[in-house]
Amino acid sequence: MVTPNQQPIRVGVMGTHSTGKTMLLKRIEMELRAHGVPVTRTGRIGRRAAHIGLPKMQKHTEASTEWVIAQGIADELAAAAQLDPGPAQVVLADRAALDALSYFHAAQEWRTEHPNRLERERLRLLAFTQAPKYDLLLATVLDTAVQVEPKHDYDARYRILVDQHTHRILAEDALSHQRVTSDPDSQARAVERALEICLKENEV
């Protein structure tokens, strides 16, 4: 039985835009609910940032990146607090804290700006405080052959840069994670892995 003081299981996802992050977590959520597991999912953080006037995508700044990281942390804590003590508690983080670093570094490269070393390190430390909290970290892989809906009007180069920085951050710090491609089998394996961890850790 999970006690009130025990931390919930956290599954985070990161990756460039329109690579199936949200849909992947929705699948995991549906499967967990089918097993009777109390679960909650964070999300829409980019939309909320834009709503209060913060720059996004290739316009990301130190301030907007810090807000996204801090708000993501707050969202995960709030989600965990809303879960009732029971045989299972799971928080699905749509955009793990490290995701914001990928978008920021890609934005700086896209704008050909020279990074402020101290600011980048400060943001890195803030994001990496959350890394140990994820029981499973999923990283989507960009497949440029998969078409994106025209309404999104994404900058193709920036989208590729975010993907590159995502996997560079994970590789440089040797962070344990599972890559998820556009292949249905890869996505199925990610869902299965999440279920394995969540159901095992929450056995009564």
Rank of each mutant, 00 (worst) to 15 (best):
N116D: 14
L125S: 00
K133I: 06
A96H: 10
P132A: 14
T140M: 15
P87Q: 03
D135G: 07
F104L: 07
R122W: 15
D75Y: 08
L136N: 07
A80Y: 03
P85I: 05
D75K: 05
L123F: 07
V141N: 05
A106K: 00
A96I: 05
L98Q: 07
D94K: 06
D84Q: 11
Q89S: 14
A97G: 01
E76C: 11
G86W: 01
V90Y: 08
W110S: 15
A131K: 10
L118W: 13
P115W: 14
D94N: 13
Y103W: 03
A80P: 04
F128T: 00
V91K: 03
L77Y: 04
N116V: 10
A97Y: 14
D99G: 09
A139R: 04
A80I: 00
D135H: 10
G86A: 14
P115K: 02
F104C: 05
A80H: 00
Q89D: 10
Q108M: 13
L92D: 07
L92V: 08
A81F: 00
H105V: 00
I73M: 12
A88C: 13
D75R: 06
F104G: 06
E76M: 09
A88M: 04
L118N: 10
R95V: 12
L126M: 15
A127G: 02
A139L: 13
P87S: 07
L118T: 11
R124C: 01
A79W: 01
R111E: 12
I73C: 06
L77S: 09
A139S: 14
H114L: 10
Y134V: 06
D99Q: 09
T140Q: 07
N116C: 13
E109K: 01
T112R: 13
V91G: 05
Q130H: 11
A81S: 12
H114R: 06
L83D: 12
I73F: 15
Y134L: 09
P87R: 02
Q89W: 08
A131E: 13
R95H: 10
A100V: 03
P115Y: 15
Q108H: 09
P85E: 09
